[in-house]
Amino acid sequence: MTDSELILNCENVVMDYDGFKALNNCNFKVHYNELRVVIGPNGAGKTTLLDVICGKTKPTSGKVLFGKGTNLVGKNAEDITKLGVGRKFQAPSIYSNLSVWQNLDLSLKRASKGVFPTLMGQSSPAERARIEEGLETIGLTEHAHDRAGSLSHGQKQWLEIGMVILQEPSLLLVDEPVAGMSDKETEQTGQLLTKLSEKQAIVVIEHDMDFVRQIAKIVTVLAEGTVICEGTVETVQADDHVREIYLGRAIVAH
């Protein structure tokens, strides 16, 4: 595969927190329409990597090339969002005092999100249809007019996934989507992500190895801020270095 097929290319990214290198010369590439899973022990820098890509934090050095070579480093979060990077946070991060519908309506991709277009804007029938479609995808049609804060934990996770989907990102960053979900919800989430990956590139951080096996084609293992291994679930689990890092952890037991 050549670089022109990459939607994301992180080159030598360093994130230095006063001497602690959360990311240490991290090189991470993702292709268009790929579903990539990132695993790694606690403190490996997985969430930091997503933070750097979506503009939540600025890396100490390195490049984050997105799409046709746009460097995301130094851009602010709202511009990166507009370029087509969507982020689903680890703890469900929704607007709890708005209804489910309003959460989705605010997230919907629109030509302008400035103050005055937002003040004057009315949802077009096409936009309303897209919101209804999104509600169906995440299974919250029944709850469209409920206050988002009143949803269950799993439903909140789904709502946030829906919000990110409606932003129509070409790259979707998902941080531990199934944490706190029941087995059934976990499986549904896996199916949803697999379906979405037909249209957009997705990077998922996950600890739950059953879930990883369900969705992953290629897995990237991150440890101490660098990529130490990349490949199919089987290759990665057979890798000696990975076994060493995870010694005594769940992955060896499987």
Binding site: S93, S107, G121
Partner: peptide
Amino acid sequence: SRAGKVLIAIRDSESRVTFSG
């Protein structure tokens, strides 16, 4: 208006609002 909802969203979670664009 939708901007009014953005105001409430800012009150709920200002940092999240930037990730909605």
